[in-house]
Design a binder for these strands. Structure first.
Length: 592
RNA sequence: GGCCUCGUAGUUCAGCUGAAUAGAACGUCAGAUUCCGGUUCUGAAGGUCGGGGGUUUGAAUCCCUCCGAGGUCACCA
């Protein structure tokens, strides 16, 4: 039984008995006792003073006395200021440990019957993934995992932006410059190859603009009407008309990009249940807009364009259909949301999208509400901030964008260098080693990014992230390997890890408390859609083990019972670490 | 200019629905340790929680205001 529930229940009884009042839930506040004080669980008595009409000290003492004599689990209490610190008996904590150990699905919540869709990644097909996408993918993936652990049925989807002027730019530059270069002929990853031509296009555009300006054109005019840009727009028109040659090239080049993306996704460890393509969904939503128009939710301007008025919500008006009847981004998102909610019977839909689109999602929700969809409140924009580097911001114009593949590769190679330096890998095969470097490099990256509150702008420092000390992925991986090594040695001695009636010291009770917190953290993190909570919890647990390990000798302990109990405790720590890191997609090594 | 988000040790981050002396880590400094100024261990210093006001027995947390940083307000996506 959860100790805080136990105390809350007792407190309620005590108040009723002593003061004859049924105390309201939110007056019964408990928390883990701070380290400086004696005790396990602390009840805050301030809120109860208006019931007792006595001083904090007297109230605390009366309640403590009642609880102590009415519950076998409580062995002592003390009152400091308005805080009633309660110590629970050793046998109680052993029972808690036993409960944790016996629960094979520890942390896994029962099925909720809810279906939740998580959309993340959502790349453009004109260039490779970069550091920003990494944050997106890692957040999306771990939120999806987190919701699964919370018992929900999760559908992971990716909406690929595969159409529009941007891909035409790459296509055009490829046609002009490449000499039919392919990923196979060049040995380049498909997404990088296409990205190369996107850059080439922009270089050509810049050149043309400069020369036009030199010839006396207005800069703005030149930027709009450079010949190559006109050509790209013509290509887009041809694409929309279904021009065979253009569509063929479009298919080929996008295919290269998808091959490239797949490799990056695989290495990052993310996957999707379904992939949507904008080329197939961009017409959705029009009928919804027309319906809204008929119902008077939207209105038409003189030139024929359709708008939604949101001035009563303190916002502007929003365009939904252009004068020529074509749709915009918002139109499509209205349509896809509607389609998904009805097709999958969703209870919730989470969009993992950068915070520059906060306004978009605010508007999306309002419009859906205006259209009368009850589920409009069940869309959630998981908004995340930019990732900056020690060198400063990434700017595509200045070419300081960090490529995802390059970054992953450099993380893994740094992991290789530092682990080789530390040694201890002699008895590993080449294959095992490479696997270790891979999970260390990626573990460093994933942990460092996920541990930060999503909505905050963050700074990614590769050097700091891969340090084996500190609040890092490798530290947790190292802790795990260390525990597994202890357990292997114990096994060689023929020892079994189990709960016994041995004694517990203060640190061990603390660890049991922390372990016991795991399911609570899972639920909390799920409600907040924030895997960062899980990451920081895992770090706390790992740090607790290291302190513990430093204080007591586990293998040298002579009492077999105590030894067995210590082993089961650390075994459980390693298991919970694995479960927590599994949510973030970090693999923990058996040795390193 | 309107709207949204953020501002916590030198740095990167925690701080749950308000509670005791605001926590880690890295860095810094001191001591110990070894072939070593690099590794490891121990310890210390370091904070007006952006400023001001308010609500409360109690505020980093809630409200108002100002300052600072970022984002966004397209017949772009």
């Amino acid at each position: 039984m959860n100790p805080e529930y136990l105390i809350t229940g007792l407190l309620k009884d005590a108040i009723k008995e002593l003061y004859g009042v049924e105390a309201h839930e939110n007056l019964l506040q408990t928390q883990a006792t701070r380290k400086e004080f004696e005790g396990d669980i602390t009840a805050v008595v301030f809120p109860l003073l208006k019931i007792s009409r006595k001083s904090p000290e007297i109230t605390g003492d009366e309640l403590g006395k009642y609880m102590e004599s009415n519950c076998d689990h409580i062995c002592s209490y003390n009152v400091v200021k308005g805080f009633l610190n309660i110590s629970l008996s050793e046998s109680y904590w052993i029972d808690v440990l036993k409960e944790i150990v016996l629960d094979n699905d520890f942390g896994q919540q029962p099925p909720s019957g809810k279906s939740i869709m998580v959309e993340f990644s959502s790349p453009n097909t004109n260039k490779p993934l970069h550091l920003g996408h990494i944050r997106n993918n890692l957040l999306g993936w771990s939120v999806a995992r987190l919701l699964e652990v919370n018992g929900h049925n999760v559908v992971k989807v990716n909406l690929v932006n595969d159409r529009g002027i941007h891909i035409c730019k790459s296509m055009l530059a490829w046609k002009k410059l490449s000499g039919e270069e392919t990923p196979y002929s060049s040995g380049m990853k498909g997404d990088h190859l296409v990205g190369k031509y996107y850059v080439a296009f922009n270089d050509m555009l810049k050149e043309q603009v400069e020369s036009l300006v030199k010839d006396g054109f207005d800069r703005e005019e030149a930027e709009k009407n450079a010949p190559i840009l006109v050509e790209a727009r013509e290509m887009l028109v041809k694409w929309e008309e279904g021009d065979k040659e253009v569509v063929e090239l479009w298919k080929t080049m996008n295919g290269w990009v998808y091959d490239g993306f797949d490799k990056t996704y695989e290495r990052l460890g993310v996957s999707f249940d379904k992939i949507y393509y904008e080329s197939q969904t961009y017409l959705l939503g029009k009928s919804l807009v027309n319906e809204g128009l008929e119902n008077g939710v939207f209105y038409r301007k003189e030139n024929g364009s359709v708008w939604c008025d949101m001035t009563s919500e303190g916002l502007d008006e929003k365009l939904l259909l252009r004068a020529d009847g074509t749709s915009v981004y918002m139109t499509q998102d209205l349509g896809t949301a509607h389609q998904r909610f009805s097709e999958y019977k969703l209870d919730e839909h989470i969009y993992v999208v950068g915070n520059e689109q906060n306004y978009h999602f605010q508007v999306l929700r309002i419009i859906l509400k205006k259209l009368g969809f009850a589920w409009s409140d069940n869309i959630y924009h998981l908004s995340y901030g930019m990732v900056e580097l020690p060198e400063g911001k990434m700017k595509s114009r200045e070419g300081t964008v960090v490529d995802a593949d390059d970054l992953i590769e450099s993380m893994v190679s740094t992991a290789r260098d530092t682990s080789l330096e530390l040694g201890k890998l002699e008895d590993m095969s080449e294959e095992e080693r490479n696997h270790l470097f891979e999970i260390l490099g990626l573990g460093a990256l994933k942990y460092f990014i996920v541990k930060v509150d999503p909505k905050k702008t963050m700074l990614f420092d590769p050097k700091e992230s891969i340090d084996f000390n500190g609040n890092t992925g490798p530290f947790i991986q190292y802790t795990h390997a260390r525990i597994r090594s202890i357990l292997r040695k114990a096994e060689l001695e023929g020892l079994h890890a189990e709960v016994t009636e041995g004694t517990l010291n203060k640190k061990e009770i603390e660890i049991i408390k922390t372990l016991n917190l795991f399911p609570v953290r899972i639920i909390e993190a799920g409600n907040e859609h924030s895997p960062a909570v899980v990451a920081n919890y895992a770090y706390e647990l790992a740090r607790e083990f290291n302190q513990y390990y430093h204080e007591v000798s586990i293998l040298k302990e002579t009492d077999k019972n105590i030894k067995a109990q210590r082993l089961i405790l650390i075994d459980k720590i390693s298991l919970v670490l694995r479960k927590a890191m599994n949510i973030i997609g970090i693999e923990l090594p058996e040795r390193m």
